[in-house]
Design a protein around this nucleic acid. Structure first.
Lengths: 198, 198, 198, 198
DNA sequence: AATGAATGAGTTTTCATTCAT
DNA sequence: GATGAATGAAAACTCATTCAT
C-alpha cells in the first residue's frame, strides 16, 4: 500500500507556492527551484506534476481564475436588484481574498505574460469577458444596451486601474474607498442617463 | 576619421528598439541580442552604451517618462481653466504617441519591473506623482482639497485602467471613447460636489 | 494470500514491453517508466525484478538470443544436407518471429549498446559466433575450410544487411526475396568453387 | 575589427568532435559538454552555433552524407563501364575515409537515431536511395531493370552488412576482402542472368 | 507483491556579459 | 566605434533509482 493520492495535494501546494513566489521577488524571475522549496518538495517533483514551468504558471493562473469565478458566482446568486449586483461584483473583486498583495501581484505577472503566452491570454480573456458580462447584466435592467456597455467598460477600467495601482503601491486610497468610488461612478452614470431621457 | 557623435544616435536607436522588443518579440523575456538586432547593431554595442541590460531598461523607461512629461508640460502651459487642464492631461495621456501598443506594453513591463528594481520604482513614482498633482491642480479651483484628491485618484485609476486594458487587448473601447469617459467622470464628480454644496 | 509465482510472469511482461518500447516509443531513449507502463506495472516493479535498466536490457537481449538459439537448434536438428542446413539457418533468421519490426529494432539497439556494455557485447558475440559456425558447418562438406569461412562471412553480412535495412525501412525487398537472395548467393559461391576446382 | 569568420571553423570543429565522441564512448550518450571540450570550446558555443544537440547531430550526419556523396560522385565521373562503376562505388564506400572506426560508429548511431528522428530518417534515406540508384545505374546496361533492382538490393545489403559488422567488430574479414566479396557477388549475379538468357 | 511518490544527480539550454581585434 | 566570438553561471528539465507504505 503506497503513499497515495499525493498528486492533488502537491499540485495545490505548488500552486500556492507559485503565488507566494510571484509576490515576493517581484516574481518576474521566480525560479522553479524557489517555488519547489517553498512548497517543501524537490524541483523534480514540480516538473513531475506540471511538466514545465510554463504549465505550472498557467495552472496557477487557472486556479486564481476559478477562485474568482466561484466567489463571483456565489455572491451574484443572492442578488435581485442592479444595485445589489454591482455591489456583489465589487465585493468579490475587492474582497480581501482577491485584493491581497500576493494575489494581485500574481495577476499582474499573468497580465504581462499574456502578451506572449497564448494560454495565458486565453485565460485572461475569460476573466475579462466574465467581468464585462456581469457588469452589463447588472445594469441592463435600468439602461439601454449601449449604455450598459459603456458603463461596464468604464467600471471595468476603474476596477483594473485600482488593482494595478494597488499592486504597484501607486495609489493613496484603500480598498473601501476604491469600492465607494466605483459604486459612485456607476450610480452617476446611470443617473446621467436618466437625465438624458428626461 | 573616427565616427563621432554616434553615442546619442545609437542610444536612441537602442531605446526605440527596446520599446518595440518589449511589445513584440519577447515581452518580459526580451533578450539583449533581440534588441540589438532590432536596432541594427551588435550585442556588444548595447553594453558599450548602456553597461547592462538593467541600465538599458531604466534608460528606456526614463525616456518614455521624459516624453510624457514634456508633452504634458507643453500642453498644460496653454491652459487657463480647469476643464482645459483636464482635457490637456487626457490629450497627453491618450495621445496616439503615448497610447500606441508598443509604448503601453513597455510601460506595463516597467510597471512590473518596478516591483524589483529600485530605480524603476523611483521613475514610476515620478510619473504617478506628476499625474496626480496635475489632476489635483486642475480641479483645485473648483472643489475642496479633499475632493480634488478623490477625483484625482479616480481619474488616475480610470486612465491606468484603460491603459492596462488597451495593452492587453481586453477592452472594447477606443482612444476617443476612453477620453470621453474620463472627462465625463471628472465632470460628474465635480457636479456632484456642486450639488452637495448646494 | 500473497500472489505467488508472479516473478516469471512479470519478467516476461517487462521483457516483451522492452522490445516493443525500443521499436516504438523511445528507441534509444526508451524510459523505464514507458516500459513499465507498457507492461502494465509500476516503475518500481521493473526495478524490483531487474535491479536496473541496464539489467533489464541485458535480460531482454538474452531473451531474444535464447529464442533465436532455440529455434535455430531445433530447425538444424532435422537437417542432413548442406542445402538443408543453409535453408534451416535462413528459415530461422528470417522467420516472421525474428524478422518482425520490433524484434529487429531491438536487436539494432542492442548492437549499438554492445559498443559500451560488456555484457551486451558478450551476448552479441554469442549470436555472431553461432551464426558463423552454423554457416561454416553447413557448407563444410562441400568446400574447403577457407572457402567455408568466406561463404559464411558473406552470407552473414547479407543476413545482417537485410536485417539492418528492414529495421530502418530502407530496403525494397521482402522477407521471401531476402531468403532467396542469400540462398542464391551461397549456391553461386559454392558453384564457383566447384568450377575453380575443375 | 573583430575576430571574424569563426562560424564555419567552429562548426566544423564541433562536427568533427561529434564524430569522434560518437566513436569513443559508444556514443549513445555523448554529452554536448564532452563534444564541446573535444572541440576546444565551451558548451555554450556549441549551442550558439547549432541551437541544440539534436541539430548538432543532424548537421553531423548531413556532413558525413555530403562527404560520401562528393566522393561517390567524383569517383563515378571517371567511369565508363558497368564494372568500373561498381568498383567506383565499392572504392568509395569502403575507402579508408569512410570505413574508419569513428565514421562507421557515427553512421551506426545515426542509423539508430533515424528510428525516432524525422530529419535523421530523411537524411538516411538520401544515402540509401543514392546508393541504390548508383548500383542500378551501374548494372543497367548489362541486365534487365528487374534484375538491376535485385542486384542493387543484394549488393546494398552486403555493403551495409559489412559496415555493420565492422562497426561492431563482429566480422573476421577486412576491407579488401569485403570489396572482393561484393564485387564477386555482383559478377556472379550478372553471369547467372547471362546464363538464364542463354 | 506492488505502488507511485519523491529525489537528486546529470544534462541540456539560455543569455547577459566580457573581450580580443 | 564596433563587432561577434566566447564564456560561464544559472536555470530548466529528465529520469533512473530509492523508499515508505
Amino acid at each position: 500500500m503506497p503513499k497515495i493520492g499525493m498528486r492533488p495535494i502537491r499540485r495545490e501546494a505548488l500552486i500556492t507556492a507559485t503565488i507566494e513566489a510571484l509576490a515576493e521577488d517581484g516574481g518576474l524571475d521566480a525560479r522553479v527551484s524557489d517555488i519547489a522549496r517553498k512548497a517543501g518538495v524537490s524541483t523534480g517533483l514540480a516538473h513531475h506534476y506540471f511538466g514545465s514551468k510554463e504549465e505550472l504558471f498557467v495552472e496557477t493562473m487557472r486556479h486564481l481564475l476559478v477562485l474568482l469565478g466561484t466567489a463571483s458566482a456565489a455572491s451574484l446568486k443572492r442578488c435581485d436588484t442592479p444595485r445589489e449586483r454591482i455591489d456583489a461584483i465589487l465585493e468579490t473583486n475587492f474582497s480581501p481574498r482577491q485584493f491581497d498583495k500576493s494575489t494581485i501581484a500574481a495577476w499582474l505577472i499573468f497580465y504581462v505574460r499574456s502578451i506572449k503566452s497564448d494560454e495565458s491570454r486565453r485565460l485572461l480573456s475569460i476573466y475579462t469577458r466574465r467581468l464585462r458580462s456581469n457588469l452589463i447584466f447588472a445594469v441592463s435592467p435600468v439602461c439601454t444596451p449601449k449604455q450598459a456597455v459603456e458603463i461596464a467598460e468604464g467600471a471595468a477600467a476603474l476596477i483594473d486601474g485600482f488593482w494595478l495601482r494597488t499592486a504597484l503601491n501607486t495609489t493613496l486610497i484603500e480598498r473601501e474607498q476604491a469600492i465607494t468610488t466605483v459604486r459612485k461612478y456607476v450610480d452617476q452614470q446611470l443617473m446621467s442617463y436618466q437625465n438624458e431621457k428626461a
